[in-house]
Amino acid sequence: MRYRLRAGSFAWMIQRISGVALTIYIFFHLYYLSSLRDPVKFELLRKLLDDPFVKFGEAGLLLLVIAHSFNGIRLILLDMGVPTRMQKTLFFIAALTGGIIFFIGSWPILGGIL
């Protein structure tokens, strides 16, 4: 299945997997926010955030968000008329800038434990 490994196809799979994961994350996020009404629970969850394991999870979340957003931008640009021959270049640009932003963005999250 070599077709799976081409830039466009790879980008599509990432988009799909990250999309599903992020939608599932909405549940957790709302659960977390619901604790805002309950100071005891909120404090408990806050503490949980200091756990390095959860920190990695949070960085992972950031990675998903960046991947989905940057490929999303790529897709919208292509929808708006950027020619097909640019699609691979756009994929690599998205991957590169996304990577850099992830590196910068994950620093405040992981900085404490690394």
Binding site: R6, G8, S9, D79, T84
Partner: peptide
């Protein structure tokens, strides 16, 4: 169509 571009390559 999710703009996968396999068709263009094929």
């Amino acid at each position: 169509c999710h703009s996968i571009y396999n068709c263009v390559e094929a």
